Simulated assay, not measured.
Amino acid sequence: MILPIVAYGSPVLKKKAKDITPEYPNLSELLENMYETMYGAHGVGLAAPQVGLPIRIFLVDTTPFADDESFTPEEQKQLSSFKKTFINAEILEEEGEEWAFSEGCLSIPGINEDVFRKPTVTIKYQDENFKEYTETYEGLIARVIQHEYDHIDGILFTDKLSSLKKRLIKGKLANISKGKCSADYRMRFPAASKKR
């Protein structure tokens, strides 16, 4: 089932999400719905706060980047097969020299800005069966993980922009929270006027 994605301005997007246990109700159904929602919105990542749940879950599937010719054949191969569920994740280390890449977000449709992130990330997480891993990722996969991880810490990519950039997009962000934006997927807007 495709879930509505909550828009910029929703309080859940600014909350630090909580860990879950294997007893979390209907977890496999929730994960299935989140994957369906992400694919329906043509996303490469989706975090639980984006569907209104303040819990530490996010998904990543970088397959759509595999056709991008700006990546080396080796990078394309990695991107084409990277699909993972991250539960109760904790970033242990971010390393390397920061690099810029244009990021967008399903909760902030129509806005893309360059964000600086470190190229290597080491993360501890559990999969959908609560098996624990500690792994290191690089490049675009690391970036998508960092972006989604920020969501479970209540951070949006717009929080990482310069104060000038923030001022320039302030009006657009206000419009998004009111529902004055276009997205080809279902959304919930925190400040949309209720139709009587």
Rank of each mutant, 00 (worst) to 15 (best):
M1P: 02
P4H: 07
V6C: 01
V6E: 03
A7T: 13
G9C: 02
K14T: 06
K14H: 09
K16M: 05
K16W: 02
A17F: 04
K18L: 08
K18C: 01
K18D: 06
I20Q: 04
I20N: 07
T21H: 11
L27S: 08
L27Q: 08
S28N: 14
S28Q: 15
L31D: 10
E32N: 15
N33Q: 12
Y35L: 08
T37G: 10
M38N: 13
G40K: 10
A41T: 08
A41W: 11
G43W: 08
G43E: 07
G43A: 05
V44S: 01
L46I: 10
L46K: 03
A47I: 04
A47C: 06
L53Y: 10
L53V: 06
I55S: 05
I55Q: 08
I57M: 09
V60I: 12
V60G: 03
D67A: 14
D67S: 15
D68F: 12
F71P: 05
E74L: 13
Q78C: 08
Q78L: 15
L79W: 07
S81A: 12
S81K: 15
K83G: 12
K84Y: 00
F86E: 05
I91A: 01
I91L: 06
W99G: 09
W99Q: 13
F101P: 05
F101R: 09
S102A: 11
G104Q: 05
L106Q: 13
S107W: 08
P109I: 14
I111V: 15
I111T: 00
N112C: 12
E113R: 09
V115Q: 02
F116A: 12
R117H: 07
D127Y: 01
F130K: 08
F130E: 09
K131L: 05
E132R: 11
Y133C: 04
T134N: 09
E135Q: 13
E138W: 00
G139S: 12
G139W: 00
L140W: 01
I141T: 06
R143A: 03
Q146F: 00
E148F: 03
D150C: 04
D150N: 14
I152A: 02
D153G: 01
G154Q: 02
G154R: 03
L156M: 14
D159V: 02
D159K: 00
S162N: 13
L164I: 15
I169R: 03
I169H: 03
I169L: 08
K170T: 12
L173Y: 01
S177A: 12
K178C: 04
K178T: 05
K180F: 15
A183Y: 07
D184M: 09
Y185E: 06
R188V: 15
A192S: 14
S193Q: 14
K194F: 10
K195M: 10
